[in-house]
């Protein structure tokens, strides 16, 4: 350890250890969430979900992962190879970068950057480019349509996300996620900014491409959308990224509006994970209760409701702060 640190320096070593921890967390989180998703879906449809493999079906995601690992990785003949290969890898960059700055506990953060939230927001647009590369590179009309929808959706929902986080940034005078959590020592920001919280959560669900906003991969119209032509582990990477994005959206909502790691009695990380997974459960709940919106509805929700509302909210917040 000492020798390694003397070569690359303590700071770099800390980053590497943190990144390995993040990777482990991403995989475990996705395994738990696939199990949870199937259980939630089952109970909402008056079934019981997976129960054969292990107690309560808990080993089921591991069996699924082994099955995906064992599958043949097919590459269709007419794909655009560089784009097709790069897309599943590229979708992981924003996921990893986001985890670097999210504070899990007062001291449990890989690196507290003073422009933390900007890092997450800036890199999140990369996942859209990955979807575009997958859709275009697959040489498949359903994949391409999924990609086009994804771009239109991304343009529409990026704005309300930024505008709904801005009031909180204005109230704390900081881009650092840690100081935003510290600022909620008294009252959580969800009580000051209920509208911003709702707007962020709706737009966040849309950014993760989940039902009711799952138009880029609408199973009933587009086969599987942008990842139609992917199989085996490459498909699994898209899948992992989707589940991790769900967690990230919830984690940012918790950090910005629900007091982050703050809470009585229990240690901070437990509070953070509890709140985050509660929001993840709400996202799943939405998926299994609401039908998919139509495409014009999807765009109208954002341009005609969320964006004007978030502008008004921003103006009111700015006015009240100056009073």
């Amino acid at each position: 350890m000492e020798q390694l640190a003397s070569i690359i320096g303590w700071e770099a070593l800390k980053m590497i250890v943190g990144l390995i921890g993040v990777l482990a967390f991403v995989v475990v989180n996705a395994l738990i969430l696939t199990w949870a998703e199937r259980k939630v879906a089952g109970h909402m449809q008056r079934r019981i979900g997976p129960k054969e493999v292990g107690p309560y079906g808990l080993i089921q995601p591991i069996a699924d992962a082994l099955k995906l690992l064992g599958k043949e990785i097919l590459t269709p003949r007419a794909v655009d190879k560089p784009l097709y290969y790069a897309a599943p890898m590229l979708i992981f960059i924003p996921v990893l970068v986001s985890f670097v700055v999210i504070p899990f506990d007062a001291s449990l953060v890989v690196k507290d950057i003073n422009v933390g939230i900007l890092v997450i927001l800036a890199f999140s647009s990369l996942s859209m480019f990955s979807i575009l590369m997958a859709g275009w590179g697959s040489n498949n009309k359903y994949a391409l349509m999924g990609a086009i929808r994804s771009i239109a959706q991304n343009i529409a929902y990026e704005i309300p996300i930024l505008l709904s986080l801005l009031p909180v940034i204005m109230m704390t005078n900081s881009f650092s996620l840690k100081s935003i959590v510290e600022a909620q020592n008294g009252l959580w920001f969800v009580f000051y900014q209920p509208l911003a919280f709702c707007i962020y959560f709706i737009a966040g669900v849309a950014e993760t491409n989940r039902t009711p906003f799952d138009l880029p991969e609408a199973e009933s119209e587009l086969v599987a959308g942008y990842h139609t032509e992917y199989s085996g582990m490459r498909f699994a990477l898209f899948f992992l990224a989707e589940y991790t994005n769900m967690f990230i959206v919830s984690a940012i909502a918790v950090t910005f509006f629900l007091g982050g790691y703050q809470g009585p009695f229990l240690p901070g990380i437990i509070w953070f994970l509890l709140k985050s997974y509660l929001l993840v459960f709400v996202i799943m709940w939405l998926k299994w209760t609401f039908p998919r919106v139509r495409f014009d509805q999807l765009l109208n929700i954002s341009w005609k409701a969320l964006i004007p509302l978030s502008f008004i909210n921003l103006l009111i917040t700015g006015g009240l702060l100056k009073l």
Binding site: S125, M128, I151, I155, E158
Partner: peptide, 15 residues
């Protein structure tokens, strides 16, 4: 730079 030129301008070009 990333937020504006990648997140907004390039996305519009993609569109």
């Amino acid at each position: 730079q990333i937020l504006i030129y990648v997140g907004a301008v390039s996305v519009l070009i993609a569109f």
